[in-house]
Nucleic acid binder design. Structure first.
Lengths: 204, 204
DNA sequence: GTGCAATATTGCAGAGGGTGCATCATTGTC
DNA sequence: GACAATGATGCACCCTCTGCAATATTGCAC
């Protein structure tokens, strides 16, 4: 009762808010997978999520964002801190890999299933790749800041911005590779492969 | 008169079409640089280009495409053929650099000035980065095909798709770097620098 | 140069995305 | 239970983009 609400607030208000956001993403993805992006209107998504169309836009800036479940992006705190401190292995390329894996893992926020669903939608609707990229651009500063922090303890061989771009391209490449090989296994398991390929191209 | 129109058709029709497209891009960029992307409507661009709003959409799919002058993307034939044949140097990383330089050079189609204007707009309006990316995705197959051709004469150390992604990320990184260093000099001159950085990150 | 076919431009009507604002309902607090 | 925040909603509205039908322009053959 008298407990001052922690940052990870879980009052009724907060819980409802998250449930709604989830419901919206759920409805959006289900409808889009069933009928295609252009055949689904915001009105329909709102109806399926049992909210008004106006409320939809209180949760997501655009229809595309809702479909991709883009709103939250929070790297795992443990991974983040370890990376900033120069770890976990000390070898930049290996540590970047860990970062990318974490990013892909926490990608769609909640579950594994949802993450793969997003990747499936991204392949079905290439238009959304642009949004996905834009979303990354919006959160790029976070990643840049992370590299900046690491730089103080272990100097980087490149500008933080370029480093951040590597993180993104590795994530994208892994997703691509996963799709190219028929969705086999787990997306994150494709990270090492594409990392090696990228390095090979640049040093060949 | 009786000359059968060559592929590079320059009848009155074709000339007018290009002039219009140019006029549209010109008007769009001028207005956006002056007032910002969201404060400019298609109607205004159309008026400035002396066409009807409806005709605008006969030329460009979206407002954003017009602002970026995105419609044509043609790698220099000489550069293309040399690359496909395994050249010009024979070292993949060096040849990719040449490719990226050519891409950045022919970027906005016409002149040097326009290319830099596009880059300036991209920095002012990050929203357009998504479109820029989408545009690349649409033309990615061309680049992939180019790598595939090269592969027959000189085996690649990576999938063509990953290679294409490298081309893109290098182009973006060079643009970024150019912007970060205060627009000094020519964009293409930043390619070597970011290439080295990228390689350094992945092999560190 | 006249006539015909192909191609472009345009206007119009309309669907759909997205926003600002005022109002009403719910939740948290004392 | 009263009061303040906060969120949901309805409404009016602007803008992007599309399909369609009508009209104008151009290329070409004669």
């Amino acid at each position: 009762m008298t407990a001052p609400p922690a940052p990870g607030d879980v009052g009724l208000r907060e819980r409802k808010k998250r449930a709604r956001a989830d419901a919206i993403v759920d409805a959006a993805q289900r409808l889009v997978l069933a009928r295609g992006l252009d055949a689904v209107t915001v009105e329909e998504i709102a109806e399926a999520a049992q909210i008004s169309p106006r409320t939809f836009f209180n949760y997501f800036e655009t229809k595309d964002d809702a479909v991709l479940g883009q709103g939250s992006f929070e790297l795992d705190a443990e991974v983040r801190e370890a990376f900033a401190a120069g770890g976990p292995t000390g070898r930049l390329s290996a540590d970047v890999e860990v970062l990318v894996r974490s990013m892909l893992g926490a990608f769609a926020g909640t579950g594994h299933h949802q993450a793969e669903q997003v990747l499936e939608i991204l392949q079905l609707e290439p238009r959304l790749l642009g949004r996905h990229f834009a979303w990354f651009e919006r959160h790029k500063s976070q990643v840049v800041a992370l590299f900046d922090r690491r730089h103080t303890s272990a100097p980087l061989p490149a500008d933080a911005e370029v480093c951040a771009m590597v993180v993104f391209v590795l994530a994208r490449a892994a997703m691509d590779d996963w799709g190219r090989t028929g969705h086999t296994g787990d997306v994150v398991d494709h990270v090492p492969h594409v990392t090696r390929q990228l390095a090979a191209i640049l040093t060949a």
